[in-house]
Nucleic acid binder design. Structure first.
Length: 289
DNA sequence: CTTGGGACCTGGCTGC
DNA sequence: TGCAGCCAGGTCCCAA
């Protein structure tokens, strides 16, 4: 699934072939792909426009156009952007031809991805929380966000309004690295745990970017290569396998309808900290200011 | 305001 | 072998 490291990789690897080039052809095969704007409008507005820049915000890709408008893409679960593929396969939902003999194919097995044509990209991505690598995203900010919620800490990490770009697998990895059980009530984390988690979020995402993302499902890089971040996963997608740190069997539970993998030994949980736990959990609230 | 649950989607897997 | 039913999860929407 494309999360921040995957979308960052796609952006980095696509940019040299598209930025500064013009759209010469647009074919959209699936009208559900277009979330805002009609097929005709998208077609009319894109043809002949130059792509001035390609940016990432959270899990969104933003193509800034010479018209001043932006084409925003979200790949959701199974979307990929393929650069000059040998063939346009059955999962292709749109094809963008670009000057300089380049072609970008939006391929999406489960058809959950969306594109938006907007005047101002901020109307779509402005609601997102801070980028994990922004200077403004400090341990203090994370601590304040966590202290406002009684839901499991993992659910807070997945909330894109609180911090942008973390998805299910990197939430599992960051919590393992920090030694924090995913079911811990968000507000129950100590100041020290918040600092550790903050460091681990950045470390896990940075390592994954360096590996060009994780090819656990349908994710491939624009030119078809796989990412290798999943080779270093300690718990994510490793249900039933031994923990690389202690050898305990990695457990799988559902947290707010999300499958969650964790090590029961490295990420221990005392009952007073669970989302279902006792009232005493409120006494462990720590304000990080 | 926060929280929880369902809808959207379809390929792949499980079990009968 | 065939097929029904479930599962994966990012985001939006609605109800409590």
């Amino acid at each position: 699934m494309p999360e921040l490291p995957e979308v960052e990789t796609i952006k980095n690897e696509l940019a040299p072939s598209v930025v500064g080039h013009s759209l010469t052809g647009v074919a959209i095969f699936d009208e559900k792909l277009v979330a805002v704007g009609s097929l005709e409008e998208v077609h009319r507005e894109l043809i002949g426009r130059k792509i001035e820049s390609l940016k990432r915000r959270g899990k969104y890709l933003i193509f800034e156009l010479s018209s001043g408008r932006s084409l925003i893409m979200h790949l959701r679960m199974t979307g990929s952007l393929l650069l000059n593929p040998r063939e346009v396969d059955r999962y292709a939902r749109a094809v963008f031809d670009i000057s300089g003999e380049h072609r970008v194919v939006f391929s999406d097995r489960r058809r959950l991805g969306r594109i938006w044509l907007v005047n101002d990209a901020d109307t779509t991505v402005g609601k997102l929380g801070p980028e994990p690598f922004d200077e403004g995203y400090s341990a203090e900010i994370l601590g304040q966000s966590l202290s406002r919620h009684r839901i499991p800490v993992k659910s807070v990490l997945l909330d894109q309004h609180i911090v942008a770009g973390i998805g299910n697998m990197y939430a599992d990895e960051a919590l393992f690295a920090a030694g924090i059980h995913p079911s811990r009530r968000a507000h129950s984390l100590s100041r020290k745990e918040v600092r550790t988690l903050h460091n681990c979020i950045r470390a896990v995402l940075e390592a994954a970017i360096n590996c060009k993302g994780a090819s656990v499902d349908t994710y491939v890089r624009p030119e078809g290569e796989l990412g290798t971040a999943h080779c270093d996963f300690k718990v994510a997608h490793r249900r039933g396998q031994p923990c690389p740190a202690c050898g305990a069997t990695i457990q799988w539970i559902k947290i707010q309808n999300r499958g969650s993998c964790f090590c029961p030994k490295c990420q221990s949980l005392s009952s007073r900290h669970t989302a279902k736990g006792s009232q005493r959990a409120s006494h462990s609230l720590h304000n990080v200011t």
